[in-house]
Amino acid sequence: MSGEARLREEICRYGRSLFERGLTPGSSGNISLRLDDGGWLVTPTNASLGFLDPARIARLDAGGNLLSGDKPTKEIPLHSALYESRREARAIVHLHSTHSVAVSMLPGIDPKAVLPPLTPYYLMRTGGTALIPYFRPGDPAVADAIRGLAGRYGAVLLANHGPVVAGESLEGAVFATEELEETAKLYLLLRNLNPRHLSPAQVQDLVTHFGLTLPEHDHDHGHDHG
């Protein structure tokens, strides 16, 4: 099996896993992988992540032109902008996961720190999450909003829509997306209960020990502590 064939199978395997666990319903969500030649593999438009055919995954060249496979997702602009601003990214996962979408609709969410530091793995896997305003799905203007983050965030939450997460591998992007969803679930469960967040010293210890790069912001700003 060629390298590209293995990557196609990997996209299908992770897509099925995400779908079967209810993390992106129906034909929602999309996945892309950046290849060594600058081109991409991208899941097709209106395709369920649970029932992908590896042979029908879109193959794009470095200019975004379709070389083979089905028509790609209409969310190409947001994938393209995140790859452009996160040069180390090799994969992007976009889901309509319930708890992350719910958090994106709450009032008072800090767009520079969607979630507080509830667990070490949230920081270790996502590095923090930004919120950008609502855009119509597929609207090219979303690309400018993502570029405006200047590559500081590998995890972005689209208001009333869902998370977009980049990783240095597909596995890394999937794990970070799952961690974001679990942290969003924890946040909703604990709202108004005055939960104990990681302290600034504990966050700094994670940064030092694991070499994390976190966006510069006040983690506690803008969150309701009950």
Score class of each variant (00 low, 15 high):
31 I>D: 04
102 A>D: 13
61 D>Q: 14
153 Y>K: 09
177 T>H: 12
45 T>S: 15
107 P>M: 05
164 V>T: 14
103 V>K: 05
199 S>K: 08
39 G>W: 01
26 G>N: 06
179 E>I: 01
128 G>I: 04
169 S>C: 05
26 G>P: 04
60 L>M: 13
137 P>H: 01
111 P>N: 07
106 L>A: 07
202 Q>C: 03
84 E>N: 07
31 I>M: 12
5 A>H: 08
195 P>Q: 02
224 D>S: 13
6 R>V: 13
23 L>R: 13
221 H>T: 02
80 S>T: 14
162 G>A: 01
165 V>N: 06
123 L>R: 10
153 Y>R: 09
183 T>R: 04
64 G>P: 01
43 T>E: 06
29 G>I: 08
128 G>E: 03
123 L>I: 08
204 Q>C: 00
34 R>A: 09
79 H>E: 12
144 D>L: 07
157 L>Q: 10
139 D>T: 11
27 S>K: 12
88 E>S: 14
185 K>H: 15
182 E>F: 04
52 L>R: 00
7 L>D: 12
177 T>E: 12
165 V>Y: 01
124 M>F: 14
158 L>Q: 07
66 L>G: 05
148 G>M: 09
130 A>L: 09
218 D>E: 15
71 K>A: 12
164 V>F: 10
176 A>N: 04
173 A>T: 10
182 E>R: 15
122 Y>F: 15
43 T>C: 12
169 S>Q: 01
190 L>G: 02
154 G>Q: 06
10 E>G: 01
153 Y>P: 12
110 D>I: 03
124 M>Q: 14
174 V>L: 03
36 D>H: 09
222 G>H: 05
26 G>S: 13
159 A>K: 11
4 E>I: 15
112 K>L: 15
140 P>R: 11
51 F>Y: 07
7 L>E: 15
222 G>A: 03
50 G>R: 00
110 D>V: 02
202 Q>I: 02
95 L>E: 06
191 R>W: 03
62 A>P: 07
